[in-house]
């Protein structure tokens, strides 16, 4: 059996009285491409944010390479308001900031592209190499780290070359066309040298041709960097094309899981997407 890379256990995220993610358990094995799909507002991005430390889940835990990286249980006001399951199962809190999680080897892209606006494409990628620095502010200011600086620049440039943006490297990131911005975001995430790549709707706003190319590209970088990929996507073509397993959530709850073929035939999934006739 392949090693479990990422494991979500009973993740519940409640905002006030709204349970956005309800008791979600899933796992991703080393080297897999796994997709999380669901209708709009199903809680996909919220689940992502619980993994990357942007949100602190209300209950449940996340394991990465067998180690608990995020954990929480209903506290304070949530003690009485908590509407999810598994209350009392988890007793400790682990809440690292997003930068610590990135340092552990989980990098992400954003649904609404978040590039550094005033920076060029090259600088955007270069910033992502900062987390592996060995220099301190003093040595960096006085350029005693020039060897490392050169390596950072080489790494950033090679990432840009890989996504085919070497010719746009000195252009302002936000002046690039939309598709290139998406690829730049992936290059930036890769520059943090991740083991697990989280892609939040990487094909949003792309036409079928671009979407197909993106799918090839994701498989390509997965193989080249020995990555594990976890993606949220609305384009069913892409999801069915490249993912090995699919999880489907609706209203925060897991409603189906399986291979693309199984999901295609699943009656619950079809009704979640198309709606059911109320008789």
């Amino acid at each position: 059996m392949a090693e479990k890379m990422l494991e979500l256990q009973d993740i519940t995220m409640q905002f006030g009285g709204v349970v956005a993610v309800n008791n979600l358990s899933m796992h991703i094995d080393q080297g897999e491409i796994v997709a999380l799909i669901g209708p709009n507002g199903a809680g996909k991005t919220t689940a992502f944010n619980c993994v990357t430390g942007m949100y602190r889940p209300t209950n449940g835990q996340v394991k990465f390479e067998g180690k608990v990286i995020v954990a929480n249980y209903p506290q304070g006001k949530m003690k009485s308001m908590y509407a999810g399951e598994n209350k009392g199962k988890y007793k400790h809190e682990v809440a690292p900031t997003p930068d610590k999680i990135t340092r552990m080897g989980i990098a992400r892209t954003f649904q609404n592209i978040r590039l550094f606006k005033t920076q060029t494409a090259f600088e955007n990628v270069l910033i992502a190499t900062h987390l592996h620095r060995t220099s301190n502010p003093f040595t960096a200011t006085f350029r005693l780290n020039y060897k490392e600086e050169r390596q950072m620049r080489e790494l950033a440039l090679s990432m840009l070359e890989m996504v085919g943006l070497q010719d746009s490297k000195d252009e302002l990131a936000t002046s690039l066309p939309y598709g290139k911005q998406r690829r730049l975001e992936i290059a930036r995430a890769l520059a943090t040298k991740p083991k697990l790549l989280l892609l939040d709707e990487p094909a949003a706003g792309m036409n079928p041709q671009e979407t197909h190319e993106l799918g090839q590209f994701i498989v390509d970088i997965k193989n080249r960097f020995n990555l594990t990929v976890f993606l949220i996507e609305h384009h069913m073509d892409l999801v069915m094309d490249i993912s090995e397993r699919i999880y489907v959530i609706d209203f925060g709850k897991l409603i189906a899981t399986g291979s693309p073929d199984e999901i295609r035939e699943n009656q619950d999934v079809i009704s979640a997407y198309l709606g059911v006739d109320e008789e």
């Binding site: 954003f110 920076q119 910033i127 900062h130 987390l131």
Partner: peptide
């Protein structure tokens, strides 16, 4: 400068 441009993205890129 990354923090100035986008705190969320900067943090996601491993900047404390």
């Amino acid at each position: 400068k990354a923090i100035r441009d986008d705190e969320t993205a900067a943090e996601a890129m491993g900047i404390n």
